[in-house]
Computed example of a mutant assay.
Amino acid sequence: MGEDRDDTLQPEQLEAYFALTEAVSLLQHAVDQQLRAEGDLTYIQFQLLARLSDAEGRLTMTDLADGVVYSRSGLTYQAALLEKAGLITRTPSVDDERATLVTITDAGRARLARVLPGHVRVGQEMLFAPLTPDDLHHLRDIMTRVRDHMRSRPPRSAAPRRSRRAPSGAPGTPAATETG
């Protein structure tokens, strides 16, 4: 706690931060519109289908939650919607009784294939069109470094669960113990 640290952002940092968050919001909005219009999918549903497709079709719910940085409960809800639509199946794992395996179906692969060209088009038009090859190289390197730094702390879905035995504020409970 005795560290001297500056909790303010410098003007250049603020400009970079707000430019990044605005660009991400604009890109996210365009992607959301495209996915809903062409595939009746939310962005998180698209991410789940894409991750399952990349993983050759099968992952645990925890692996999916960690990969898309989404809460376990939110992922369960989204998976139920995808399962109801016939785009995935969920089955208990034979290797770990606590795990649920998620598998993309042929219909899920078809839906992903249907929306992917438009998804790529939005990325090309919104993100990559104003960049030179050198810009792209630098952006990739910078964003990879930033992502890796952010990923060095496990996503909430991967963090160890805390015990709920002692009342809040009791010694040794998260409310009474500062971690960090």
Rank of each mutant, 00 (worst) to 15 (best):
T60Y: 05
P174G: 00
V24M: 10
P130N: 06
E178L: 10
L75E: 03
T42D: 10
R36L: 05
D54M: 13
Y17H: 13
A175Y: 03
D134H: 10
L49G: 00
D96C: 05
L41F: 08
A166Y: 11
D6R: 12
T144S: 14
G57Y: 08
T42K: 11
L127P: 02
T91M: 02
M61I: 11
L26G: 13
L127T: 09
Q34I: 00
A80S: 15
E3Y: 08
I44G: 11
R145T: 15
R145H: 12
S53A: 14
R162M: 04
L82M: 07
V94Q: 10
D148E: 15
K84D: 14
T60K: 02
A99E: 10
Q33N: 11
P155D: 03
L81C: 07
T173A: 00
D4L: 10
P167W: 02
S93M: 08
L87R: 05
D6Y: 09
L49S: 01
L59D: 04
L48H: 04
L59T: 04
A129K: 14
A158S: 15
F18Y: 15
G118A: 04
G67H: 03
T42Q: 10
R5G: 03
S163G: 11
L41R: 05
L14C: 07
L14T: 10
A19Y: 09
L52K: 04
E97P: 07
M150Y: 14
Q124P: 00
I104L: 01
H138I: 09
R153F: 14
M143S: 13
L9P: 00
V69A: 14
D63V: 09
G2W: 08
G118I: 00
T100E: 12
T103A: 13
D66T: 09
P11N: 05
G39I: 06
T62K: 13
M143P: 01
P174D: 04
